[in-house]
Design a protein around this nucleic acid. Structure first.
Lengths: 84, 84
DNA sequence: TATATATTTAGACAAATATCTAAATACTTT
DNA sequence: AAAGTATTTAGATATTTGTCTAAATATATA
């Protein structure tokens, strides 16, 4: 839970999730969507991956990232405890 | 949205919300629930307040904190965009 | 096999954060 | 008015975080 909230506590990472919500993307395609260096994006991807919010699969020289929506369920459940 | 996720990105603050979910509490009562100094708890309360996740009301020499569940709706909606 | 492309790892650094103690503010009670 | 209680503000400090450049690794292609 800590890892999830930590991962979500960054606008760039939330935008990455928003992108992956639409379709799977390679690390480079994700990096191209931001004005941030590739190593920094790679670091963000690592944090999202450690939180299990995304998964990755190697495809030739590319690494394709996909969103893992099941982990969002945990956050959803926690949030729902506040709805009376 | 940034403020909300920032506020939620701390185990102590999430526990404070869990406490306030049960009932309103004074700053001192909240502080008593943790092994952290009162000034530190006061700082956490300030961050939660800036994120609109809690409200406060002075009652004599006490300050009573309450949870504001309506702001959770924003997070809920964002999370829900990932379902399906 | 040499070169180009895709991505990550390593190391550095500035900014943000969580915590503390000491002091200030505000209210209550004697 | 003085002393006590509740809470916050101020200032310091160690840790974490986001970013960068340079270098390393892995795959593809000529």
């Amino acid at each position: 839970m800590n890892d999830i909230f930590k991962a979500l506590n960054d606008a760039t990472r939330r935008e990455i999730l928003d992108l992956l919500k639409e379709k799977d993307l390679s690390a480079g395609e994700i990096a191209d969507a931001f004005n941030i260096s590739k190593p920094s994006i790679s670091h963000h991807l690592d944090i999202l991956k450690r939180a299990d919010l995304i998964t990755s699969e190697k495809n030739g020289q590319f690494i394709i990232y996909s969103i893992n929506t099941t982990i969002m369920e945990d956050v959803l459940q926690w949030i729902l405890t506040f709805k009376q």
